[in-house]
Design a protein around this nucleic acid. Structure first.
Lengths: 183, 183
DNA sequence: GCGGCTAGTAAACGCACGTATACTTCACGG
DNA sequence: CCGTGAAGTATACGTGCGTTTACTAGCCGC
């Protein structure tokens, strides 16, 4: 593989990677383009050149994230428990996903909020609703998402707490109640 | 009652009221001291003079909010349903409480986050935990709080939705699952 | 080998913020 | 009626931000 010092694509990728890590670490507003450029060992002006703006770079970071969460795959019966276990981890530590981490540090800028909203919809809520049956599948998917996001909020605001087996059971029960259709 | 144009206490109160409304409307970061001063028809410098700083003013706004939520009062059996109904309202519209509105617009500044955290603890989580029994009362109160906050997050991010009677039932079920102790 | 496109750079622009300072104006007690 | 102290004002300070501009330097085809 050729090594080029002046490589537009490689520099662009470095900026993207640095932005991905920093946004996940601190959220949108508390990351400056100077921080990103420094982390990528690139010049500040290149952010504007390659991504148009800070918001454009953020949008590309979001777009680069994988859409389907592995939690949603697998059998439908175990879905509530997988969600319960996955969410229980959120009580202790930050999510791996940059989207979710950024979401938790939630941005006030309406443009950024719209980007996050669109992404949450296509990456979490819609895939989840697609796995459910009934005409209120979307409402139930939203409520399950609420539980999921809420646990993150509580950890962020009140501090982490190690989930007990009872917590996992309780969360699983919550998701079962959310996902269960009318019988 | 005497009418005084130069009334320190009245001006202070106007600033406080303006700040309360604006913080609830836009969150901490997106409100400037200039906005507050303009809304209160007071001079910018008075914010610093009377409250020390913007953060000091915010702290006083938080401190002025009522501590105990009426939802928590009343019989324990109906608590889950009252929480369910109260939370269902959050699917449609913003909370009345400035604390909760500010919480939803969540501030990144660590100092402000600490203020919000302390307030959420003393105004919501602790009173709720106090009403529960069992050694994991706090864990269950935190989970109920997570559901409550999560519904707000989802409304803010994905847009409001009118709660159906089924939503109320489902939320009530969620809170029952959270609040129920070991049997 | 050299000119021209282009990646990369340095520096500054313009703005908005929270805060601080020096000044002005008014109410009120003597 | 006047001086004094507090209430209120105008303005500027310093900082940090996202963005832009004018420039430099390197790669590549000819």
């Amino acid at each position: 593989m050729e090594v080029r010092l002046r490589d537009r694509e490689a520099t662009r990728e470095r900026l993207l990677a640095a932005a991905r890590a920093l946004f996940a670490e601190h959220g949108y507003e508390r990351v400056t383009v100077r921080m990103i450029a420094a982390a990528a060992e690139a010049n500040i002006a290149l952010v504007g050149r390659y991504f148009g703006s800070k918001a454009g770079l953020f949008g590309e970071v979001l777009a680069g994230e994988p859409t389907v969460r592995q939690v949603l795959e697998g059998d439908l019966e175990g879905l509530a428990r997988r969600l319960g276990e996955y969410t229980a981890q959120r009580m202790r530590a930050e999510p791996d996903s940059p989207i979710l981490r950024t979401l938790e540090r939630s941005a006030g800028d309406p443009e950024i909020q719209a980007l996050l909203s669109e992404r949450l919809r296509t990456a979490v809520v819609n895939p989840l609703a697609a796995r459910l049956e009934g005409d209120d599948a979307m409402a139930r998917a939203r409520m399950a998402t609420a539980v999921f996001l809420g646990v993150g909020s509580v950890r962020r605001l009140l501090g982490p707490s190690d989930p007990t087996p009872e917590d996992v059971d309780r969360l699983t029960g919550l998701f079962e109640a959310c996902l269960r259709g009318r019988e």
